[in-house]
């Protein structure tokens, strides 16, 4: 990413609100908490849901807090059930997914990347994803959504791709 552009984004980060969520009964929160800390140190406003939240609780928090970014962490495989339910509740409550960046992180098999994107997820990050990549993607995606860019990018696994490259 262009250096000037990035700097410009960094300056605006404290206007960006991120909800980091741990839906489900899985208690593995190392990644979620490290990410919260990193995002805070990078200038974002971060809300962490804590553990053991239901789909309804996560969606309601995202709605009430009117977050710019909703990031969900799964190390239990429960994303298959939770992600569609959470996004569904958001949409039913009038949230336009073109207005919120949706990220999923954790043990997400590659064969499910496309399914996640089709559901409305913008970025899928796997365990050990560099945190810089996550924040760069947040910045890029917020800009693309705000500008209603015709050239939307997605993040899947380790790669930034364009919509047409999605398989």
């Amino acid at each position: 990413m262009n250096g000037d552009l990035k700097m410009n984004m960094v300056l605006n980060r404290n206007k960006i609100k991120v909800l980091v969520a741990k839906p489900g009964l899985d208690g593995h929160d190392r990644g979620a908490r490290v990410l919260c800390r990193f995002l805070r140190d990078s200038g974002y406003e971060v809300i962490y849901t804590g553990l053991h939240k239901t789909a309804e609780e996560v969606a309601n928090a995202a709605l009430q807090e009117d977050v710019d970014v909703l990031g969900m962490s799964f190390l239990s495989g429960a994303h298959e059930s939770y992600v569609p339910r959470i996004l569904d509740i958001l949409k039913k409550n009038g949230v336009d997914l073109n207005d919120m960046v949706i990220l999923v992180g954790g043990t997400i098999p590659e064969e499910q990347f496309k399914k996640m994107i089709d559901l409305g997820v913008d970025g899928v990050f796997i365990p050990g994803a560099p945190m810089d990549e996550i924040s760069d993607f947040i910045d890029l995606k917020i800009k693309e959504k705000r500008d209603k860019s015709s050239d939307q990018h997605y993040f899947v696994g380790t790669k930034l791709i364009k919509a047409e490259d999605l398989v």
Binding site: R40, D41, E45, I47, Y48, K53, E57, E65
Partner: peptide, 17 residues
């Protein structure tokens, strides 16, 4: 320094679990 914040109060709100 960074303008970043960790908004931790919601964490204490009673949840279904």
């Amino acid at each position: 320094f960074t303008g970043g914040a960790l908004l931790g109060d919601r964490l204490r709100l009673g949840s279904l679990s």
